[in-house]
Design a protein around this nucleic acid. Structure first.
Lengths: 134, 134
DNA sequence: CTTGACCTTGTCACCGGCGTCAAGCTTTAC
DNA sequence: GTAAAGCTTGACGCCGGTGACAAGGTCAAG
């Protein structure tokens, strides 16, 4: 075996490697999503396994999940699963999020037609011949 | 003519009649959307014409407009138009809002499919047979 | 020793539309 | 007289996820 596993990763390196700010990492820790040991001088220390966790969080956030939504996924990863989304709690969140999104889409569609209706009423003719012209 | 137009409406009555809180009315005033005279004791005074203005604001907010969005409509009403939405600036806001909503819907649809894709990848089979059961 | 990069905690700011409490005035009703 | 209801301004809180700044400790290189 090569002996290359001793230098502990600190927050800056984790941030760089995971593509987030150090501020974000401290915030995630404060929210209980990630953990860290502390070295003698008080610096946070991480290991390689924290990278996929942070990556999972960001992947979820990029599609609109909140940090709370991400929590079960993190737990799932930490419990040894290769994928954060394969545990029951994560699946439940997926379903809930899909339902939420569907609700929001329905909301927007409803609002869209309300706005269009208000518009048409307030200004008859304004809404007509928009794209097609002629 | 009957002599019933002397008692000035104060904030509580306007709030009741327009169906909003007094807090909201003060906030709208602070944002410059509504105005008020002051009586000798410092109380705000309104007249009947303020009711449709507040109503317009609420109607717009109920379909997702911000207070800033509502401003041109208020100006339009105050300039004598029976409808707040018939002035050019209001029409522009209508169009912008419709475009915004369309963007948001597109966003949500895209996110929905991303979530579904992540879900399917993380947990193959989870997404299948949902409604139909059998 | 000094510089500079990196780390620490703590705090304010943001955005929108208020709710809510505080402390104090006026006016009305009893 | 006093209590209640209504009014005033001012200020904090909320929600989410940071960015940005302050004031300091740590450590390696020169």
């Amino acid at each position: 075996m090569d002996e290359a596993e001793e230098e502990p990763m600190r927050i800056g390196e984790l941030a760089r490697r995971a593509g987030v700010s150090t501020r974000a990492l401290r915030y995630y820790e404060q929210r209980g999503l990630i953990r860290s040991r502390r070295s003698a001088n008080g610096y946070r220390e991480y290991d390689e396994s924290d990278i996929p966790i942070v990556t999972e969080i960001r992947g979820l956030m990029s599609v609109g999940f909140t940090l709370e939504d991400a929590r079960p996924f993190v737990d799932c990863l930490r419990s040894g699963h290769p994928s954060g989304g394969s545990c029951p709690d994560s699946v439940a969140v997926y379903r809930r999020k899909l339902a939420e999104i569907d609700d929001q889409i329905r909301d927007l569609l409803a609002r869209r037609s309300e706005v269009a209706a208000q518009f048409a009423e307030a200004c008859p003719g304004c809404l007509l011949r928009r794209r097609g012209e002629s």
